[in-house]
Design a protein around this nucleic acid. Structure first.
Lengths: 341, 341
DNA sequence: CTGTTAGCGCCTTCAA
DNA sequence: TTGAAGGCGCTAACAG
């Protein structure tokens, strides 16, 4: 694999290294004719600048590290697309990595990214251990957290961008209340995950203030999936439940509920209303058509990028504040006014 | 962002650069006590080797570039997990990139990866234009293609690993035949994509040899999705169809068919058998339980890695051959013996 | 066991 | 407009 360098080009063109470098970077001080000759040679010989050398030399890589937990969650898959595009618009590349805060080798992952001299890192996580992890890297590389934080850790250690889960939980309770539901269930509550904790606590509090009864089913796995939702729902259906509506902690869980409902011949929304959270792609499909909350990923990621760019340009004077992006209710077909009462 | 280098450590430890380097790399010729002192300093000051400098110096990055079309397809999301793990076992990191052969900036992506001096690239694509694209980079970097090739382009330009789509198509036809179906439909046929082309042609040929009639519905989008399947299925259902079974070109398409069937109150498998391809995660969910073909991603990717490692270690003497991995039929609940006839 | 030196590919000041 | 030289952080001979 013959690798052609700037030196080869220089020799071929009969000029010095500096001239080739200037030509490639459109730097001033190169004869137009010389430049064209050089560029032609580069094309001809398939010259590609060695980014390692470049990065080393200019001490900039224009790369943003991006750590997210499993591309299997469609929500994250969508996000990678958006963030990549946004980054490109700002002249950055994204180095995508899969990693959860709880992973044993999460430190290795940070080291890897830092070793590559990424200019900043976005961590996608709402784990309650995220702040502790981040703390260890503060000062080494700018970090932005995309995920929730239990609130009074104020001020946050780094800029944080997240869905306003508390608002979402509240809206969900109010919405079900407006539809006449008085006995509701929350499936998939979690304390390890700040987003989920915020969500269910706010839902619970609001519902109770409105005089609703709420049954809480906890998810003891540390991630959400259709399978978990399915298991939880079966558990719920097996008891002789009185609830007329379910708030699923996220769309994956809601999908699991729909699966179980089908098996139990419980029809949604006629016999049971269902509302999710996240608005993943599947939620909008005709046979699903799940009522849910849209977190506005686009807006979230734009904010993330803003923070990143700011952190990169002035790493030492960022004021790490919390940006809350409110979710929006997307009314589709899985919720109905309550028949009872 | 204070970056501590090997030089800083050397100064702090009162030794030379070389000694620090040796200590870090566990190279022979360092006093045990010296080494420990150095490592302690590195930990204390948060030293991270600069991989750019390292790569430049040793002319190895131990990185494999990986280009795949959209993480949104759950099949690919699964693959990223597997390939990352396999690569790690071989001491490699994976640089994940999203890109399709048809993308206008696919060349930029290759340049980016080559610029980073990845040691090899896996391209996930079954586009018929893939060979042409690859051709342009042969000799610059070892490439392995994970995806189909229309056969008599023999020998392939680079090592290719792919599902035996022809075998899959054949098995599907035979399976439906055994179940007694004589009029069947194929939804999502495509000529632009070699995998799909191979699949439907083989299905068609076998079915006809067995005396079955097959209606072919083409997908003119250049990707498969639930939406596309849904559209195609509606189109199919609107005509007064006589077919008793559908072979969907992939599971996403099959999911779309299931959605449409529900809307049309056509029950699967009682009134219509359905079989997919890919065995994505959703296919195994209780309310889906789709009969389909499993491509054995694990085996495929292990083979890919083998090829990569081989290509890296002897870039100039690889015999680019085609590895076909046979798929396996996964019988679940969406196919039934034909009621008619 | 340890230090010195040259070099990886590129950019950038300083001279010419 | 061009060239020469030094340096980015690290490794790998070669000396001591």
């Amino acid at each position: 694999m013959a690798t052609v360098t700037i030196k080869d080009i220089a020799r071929l063109a009969g000029v010095s290294l500096a001239t080739v470098s200037r030509a490639l970077n459109n730097a001033p001080g190169v004869g137009e004719e010389t430049q064209e000759r050089i560029l032609a040679l580069c094309r001809q010989y398939g010259y590609r600048a060695n980014r390692l050398a470049q990065g080393l030399s200019v001490n900039r890589t224009r790369i943003i590290g991006c750590i997210l937990p499993g591309l299997d969650n469609p929500l994250f898959a969508e996000m990678t697309l958006i963030i990549e595009r946004l980054a490109r618009e700002h002249g950055y590349h994204v180095m995508l990595c899969r990693g959860r805060v709880e992973d044993p080798h999460i430190n290795r992952l940070f080291d890897y990214l830092i070793g590559h001299r990424v200019e900043a890192i976005v961590l996608f996580s709402s784990s309650r251990q995220a702040p502790a992890l981040i703390q260890r890297y503060i000062g080494r590389v700018p970090i932005v957290l995309r995920g929730s934080l239990m609130l009074p850790d104020s001020p946050p250690p780094v800029p944080v961008v997240c869905t306003d889960n508390a608002a979402g939980g509240k809206m969900a309770a109010e919405y079900l209340f407006r539809l006449g539901h008085r006995r509701v269930a929350y499936l998939g509550a979690q304390d390890q995950n700040a987003s989920h904790a915020l969500r269910y606590k706010s839902f619970l509090k609001t519902a109770q203030q409105l005089g609703m009864s709420v049954q809480l089913l906890f998810n003891d796995a540390l991630y959400s999936s259709v399978e978990v939702g399915h298991r939880l729902a079966k558990q719920f259906f097996f008891q002789n439940f009185q609830e007329t509506a379910i708030f699923a902690s996220c769309d994956s869980i809601a999908m699991g509920v729909m699966a179980a409902a089908k098996e139990f011949h419980i029809s949604i929304p006629e016999e049971l209303s269902l509302i999710g959270f996240d608005n993943i792609g599947y939620a909008s499909l005709p046979h699903v058509h799940l009522t849910t909350f849209d977190p506005d990923s686009r807006q979230i990621l734009e904010t993330v990028l803003e923070c990143l760019i700011e952190a990169i340009s002035s790493p030492d004077i960022v004021t790490p504040r919390l940006r809350l992006i409110p979710p929006t209710l997307v009314e589709r077909s899985t919720c109905q006014p309550c028949r009872l009462g």
